[in-house]
Nucleic acid binder design. Structure first.
Lengths: 215, 215
DNA sequence: TGCACAATCACGCAAATGCGTTATTTTTAT
DNA sequence: ATAAAAATAACGCATTTGCGTGATTGTGCA
């Protein structure tokens, strides 16, 4: 049961970091890394042609060409049992959600030590889901945002109605025609909307409406 | 092991439907319904004062006053082991996601027969998650949308950068200052963005960017 | 009875936008 | 090396926007 039996491949464009990773992995007693790549395309074509079935893929998100997120599903297609651990520089990366949904098994920051990364691989093999604490919080935040009751800005029904039309891209004139009211009335309503949403232009109102699911 | 041992409570504002439900439940050999309510507030205060710990809560989404979604978390707080089955009229209800995240165990349409509803209760008790097929599809669609690769509109990096600033609500002038380029250049980029996104104004671009997670 | 609030409408004006058109330079790809 | 694409910049103009300031009407609540 012991021995170097966990096959790991590394996909990471920074060659310094890639080499450091590979070295650490190969020093481990339980895993080895025979293949590492600088781009998703290289890795995928190798997996396909050599019929590689790695246990673990360490995958950078910020790759040139095809990015890591896209890469996950291709890997899963070619080698369904491979576990993918994402590596990222930024914890504010808003791709977290996509990665998790695409089937990433873990999610680590690059400032993790190479040892920590090796440790995380063990954890994935044991069925765990190593996720950096900062990233875990981000994930919870995303869920919280998705599930949160929309903030109550005290918009009246008419204002909500007009906000919807703004989001649809209508001009004041078009809105007036749609609702059979005067251009000026629309203008007044929009001013109230801006005031209540605490924005100063259409862009802000639309962004807020969509981000906070007001419409 | 047999007998009427599953305690169900019903929260539904339509009294006709509520009564029909309660009757069917009480006719069942395995469950009973002693308490039913027309509002979330009534149900919650009763749960609190009488220390009810129902096995199942059938909960309408479209309640007057506190809605069903809000109600879930209160129920879970007062009676953590209760399983909540949501009832809704519309399958296009965009609250599905919130309900699931709040911990609803099932999600049914009101046009389900009362028998089907009773059947679903059994299924929840058995550890299942009865979700109406239409609703299940909606859920998958929401996830698909959340996880979908953003449609490729062929935006260049510069265009994406400027799109982000548009979403932040900056004017062309501000964008020009931010990027240390001319107002006119910003203008040109924005025109290309509109062209590629097939919109004709800022509102359309921002709405598309946010809805399709381009930023 | 009165007052707050929603919804309606109006004028004017500076600023911003959207678009037709043209053009140079730099980068990328074949 | 050469063609295509991207990034840069400019002028003019009709339209739209954002906002200061003002007003009238209806509805509900205290």
């Amino acid at each position: 049961m012991n021995g170097k039996n966990i096959e790991v491949i590394v996909v990471e464009d920074n060659s310094m970091f890639r080499k450091a990773l590979v070295d650490v992995l190969n020093k481990s007693e339980s895993m080895y890394c025979r293949h590492s790549y600088g781009t998703a395309e290289d890795a995928l074509s190798d997996i396909e042609s050599k019929e590689l079935l790695p246990d673990i893929v360490l995958l950078d998100i910020g790759l040139p060409g095809m990015n890591g997120i896209e890469c996950i599903s291709h890997i899963k297609r070619l080698s369904p049992d491979s576990k993918v651990i994402m590596l990222t520089i930024h914890d504010e990366d808003d791709n977290i959600f996509r990665a998790i949904c695409s089937g990433a098994a873990g999610y680590l920051l690059k400032d993790a030590s190479t040892e920590e990364i090796a440790q995380s691989i063990q954890s994935v093999i044991m069925g765990g889901a190593p996720i950096d604490a900062h990233i875990a919080k981000k994930i919870l935040d995303i869920f919280k945002k998705l599930t949160a009751q929309p903030t109550e800005y005290g918009l009246t029904n008419r204002e909500k109605e007009i906000l919807k039309l703004l989001v649809k891209g209508l001009s004041k004139k078009k809105i007036a025609e749609t609702l059979f009211i005067s251009f000026h009335t629309v203008d007044t309503h929009i001013r109230k909307i801006y005031e209540k949403l605490e924005v100063h232009n259409r862009s802000g109102a639309i962004a807020k409406a969509l981000k906070e699911r007001l419409v």
